[in-house]
Design a protein around this nucleic acid. Sequence first.
DNA 1: CAGTGAGCGAGCTTCCGCTTGACTT
Length: 777
Amino acid sequence: MSKNLVIVESPAKAKTIEKFLGKEYEVMSSMGHIRDLSDKGLGIDFDNNYAPQYEVSPDKKKVVSELKKAVKSAETVWLASDEDREGEAIAWHLAEELKLKKENTKRIVFHEITKDAILRAIENPREIDKNLVDAQQARRVLDRIVGFEISPILWRKVRPSLSAGRVQSVAVRLIVEREREINNFVAESSYKVSAVFTSKDANGTQVVLPAELSKRFKTKEEAYAFLELCKNAQFLVDSIEKKPAKKSPAPPFTTSTLQQEASRKLGFSVSQTMRVAQQLYESGKITYMRTDSVNLSGLAINTAKNEIISMAGEEYVKIRKFTTRSKGAQEAHEAIRPTYMNAHSVSGTAWEKRLYELIWKRTIASQMADAKLEKTNIYINVSGSKYQFVASGEVIVFDGFLKVYLESTDDENTEKSGILPTMKKGESLAPKEILAQERFTQRPPRYTEASLVRKLEELGIGRPSTYAPTISTIQNRKYVEKGNRPALKRNFNELKLKSGKITDSKKSENYGAEKGKLFPEDIGLVVNDFLIEYFPNIMDYNFTANVEVEFDQIAEGKVKWTQSIDSFYKRFHPVVEETLKNSERHVGERILGVDPKSGRQLSVKIGRYGPIAQIGTSDEEEKPLFASLRKTQSIENITQEEALELFKLPREIGDFEGKGMTVAIGRFGPYVRHDGKFYSIPKSDDPLDITAERAIEIIEAKREADKNKIINTFGENEEIQVLNGRYGPYISFEKNNYKIPKKMDAKALTEEQCREIIASQADKVKKKKSYKRRKKA
DNA sequence: CAGTGAGCGAGCTTCCGCTTGACTT
């Protein structure tokens, strides 16, 4: 047995470090936190000065017992968890739970996993910093109090199983407020004037120069008047301005910037990025992926430098030290970078390859020279007008870091400009055509998963390890939904001056298409409004930043953590009591008016199964009528007309084979119901005016498809069926589906072969089911 | 796998931050 036991947080890290330290050291991992507050009740003893009630987490029991065993045979235990608040607490929990003795326990820290850094750490051990631990306890207890006291209020006042928390509730607030900004947005239009000029260059060949007028006109009349003036105007080059410019590379990746770029460049979701990064980390290809640091180790910088020199040359190197700007960063790790800078690519899945390449490029580029540009503006006078046309171009003089990488932006309509033809001052230009187009101001963009993460980070809310889970939580709770919206059409005016004639035409354009954006759902709106009404303090965008200041004071030993929690709780808890007692149930009810047919009240609200419209009230003698809202509708802005439409379904549309057909909209969209069976109505048909003939067509088409569905059955009871599915043939048995191996011919399978396949996949199917259950829960 | 929209109510839900595994594709 080794004389020394080193405990780190992650097994991959343990493996690497073990190599550096040699036989005298055994390195084990704690897998993060090993204990947490009990979740029977609040896990806090309020009668005993907020004493936390810690329990070893169920999934860490095994780890803890293994660590206990290892401790027994070790002379010295080295606690090497991360150097931040959480890491310090992990070290302390380990010391407590493993009953480590002060004299043979040492606390060490390192920020990069290199042999030098680790040996240096071993030479400079310290004791556990109890103040830092207390700051973590305050953080933990605060989050528990907020989460576990507010959530139950939601269960009673809104709907069971809902949740609230310091981080997730603010994340939802951001999305809700953005949606409302968008709803209230009124586009303004103006006229943008652009021209294409022609001229002859030195060789006499014709060159083209696109330019834009420096002024946008408010009205069509003004634009028209300007084009009128252009008919007989002279266009002379007034001046040519050339100025150098430079672009600098972005810093190496942190968790949040990696999530943003993987989203923009690769279309990855936030959780997908983390999954793939985890794989790269575990196979030793990149450094740790949950970090807020942009720092690179000296070793990494050196190897990057060599790589750049051999790839592009000395002049492409520029060593840079980046500093973190984000609030609350704790910098326990390096930035995310390739472990070996000379590996330009890696083996693995397609996703791993693409993400790795992105990380490699970003890291290398961060140590490369600025790109040098030359920007050119050509100003063109219009005789008789005070406005000028401007043609702008940009030429790369030296590519620098652009040789490998350029960061993307969220802005979808950046215009690119290229090389301009050579012009002389005073040169006369001929307009080939001048366009005045009506353009509209743009509403603010909806958040993507990644841009929401960026906003949270900016506000100092959440940590690298929680960005992805938070995004998942608010979707699982159905507060927000990731979705698409089709483009809308709008008309715009276009005036065109060509060959001395102005034409005036109406054109149409698509705008506002959304893909993979976060939309609030009605339950999210209601919960958000409820929380803002009763807990404005918790919902404040600065709440986290404010408590962080307090935590810092605890960490510095200036404030006792229990005092800090006490002063919070004394203000917070009465509000909880008050809200439970005095607030009404919140279902987001909105009265839209009356139903013209019956004269009864028409309203919308959140029902047990989601948003509904309602005709009548429950205190009337006649029972109210209900209809579910469509997926894209919201109780917040549905109109009376739209709500009344909903009551046109379900519709009886006639008989077929002696049985009635009903049209309605269900969870999976519009359907026809006939004889107890459901038939989906394709998007091309409108359920509101579908005819009986068409419905029969749909039913018969489905029957035909079902007939082809069965490939083979055995015997009379048909418990095993070979079926044709969306993804090819499969076996169905006792409500489970089984994959048929590619090599086998589905048509020729015997019953015995089927049973073998079923038996061989029984395990997998069981696991899948339990996974599905877990996911539901 | 598609109906429902109520309350004799059991017993449950929930936070944030550390980690990975087991699950998809």
